[in-house]
Amino acid sequence: MNIFAKTGGNMTNRRDFLTGSAGLAGILFCGCGLPRAAHAAAAAPHRLPVTVAGKHVKTIDVHSHCLFHEANALMGDEAAKLTPPINGAQQAFMTVEDRARAMDAMAVDMEILSVNPFWYGKERDLAAKIVSINNDKLAALVASKPDRFGAFASLTLQDPALAVTELETAMKKQGLGGAAIGDQVAGSEFSDPKFDPVWAKAEELGAVLFIHPEGVPELNKRWAGNGWLLNTIGNPLATTIALNHLIFQGTLDKFPNLKVLAAHGGGYLASYAPRDDHACFVAPSACDPNIKLKKQPTEYLNQLHFDALVFTPEALRHLVAQVGASQIMLGSDCPYPWELHPVDAIMATDSLSDAQKHAILGGNAAKLFGLKGVG
Rank of each mutant, 00 (worst) to 15 (best):
F4G: 08
N13L: 01
R15M: 10
S21I: 06
G23N: 09
A25E: 12
I27Y: 05
I27R: 11
F29H: 14
F29V: 04
G31L: 09
R36F: 02
A37V: 13
A37D: 12
A38M: 10
A41F: 04
A42P: 00
A44N: 12
A44K: 15
H46C: 02
L48W: 07
A53E: 09
G54P: 01
V57H: 01
K58S: 05
K58H: 06
D61C: 13
S64L: 07
F68I: 08
E70S: 14
N72P: 00
A73V: 04
G76Q: 09
E78I: 03
L82I: 11
L82F: 05
Q91Y: 12
Q91H: 11
A92F: 00
A92L: 08
D98L: 02
A102D: 05
A102W: 00
M106W: 01
V108H: 13
M110G: 03
F118L: 15
W119R: 10
G121R: 09
E123R: 15
D125Q: 13
A127C: 10
V131I: 10
N134W: 10
N135S: 08
N135V: 05
D136L: 07
D136E: 11
L138M: 14
A139S: 15
L141Y: 02
S144G: 04
G150W: 02
A151N: 03
F152S: 09
T156F: 02
Q158G: 05
D159F: 02
A161M: 06
T165N: 08
E166P: 01
E168K: 15
E168C: 11
A170D: 04
K172Q: 12
K173C: 11
I181E: 04
A186P: 00
F190W: 14
F195V: 12
F195D: 05
P197K: 14
V198Y: 08
K201G: 02
G206M: 13
G206F: 08
A207Y: 10
L209T: 04
F210P: 02
I211W: 01
G215I: 07
V216N: 06
V216T: 12
P217M: 15
E218D: 14
R222M: 14
R222S: 11
I233H: 12
G234I: 06
H245F: 13
L246N: 08
L246Y: 07
I247W: 03
Q249W: 01
D253S: 08
D253G: 07
D253I: 05
K254Y: 01
P256C: 09
P256S: 11
L258R: 12
V260Y: 01
V260A: 11
L261M: 11
A262M: 09
A263Y: 00
H264P: 00
G265V: 04
G266A: 02
L269Y: 02
L269W: 03
A270Y: 05
R275G: 04
F281N: 13
P289D: 09
E299M: 08
Q303Y: 03
L309F: 02
F311Q: 12
V320M: 07
Q327L: 04
I328Q: 06
M329N: 09
M329D: 04
L330H: 07
G331T: 04
S332M: 10
C334P: 00
E339Q: 15
L340P: 01
P342F: 05
D344M: 08
D344P: 00
A345E: 06
I346H: 06
I346S: 09
M347K: 08
L352I: 03
A355G: 05
Q356C: 07
I360N: 09
L368Q: 08
F369G: 06
F369D: 06
G370N: 13
L371H: 05
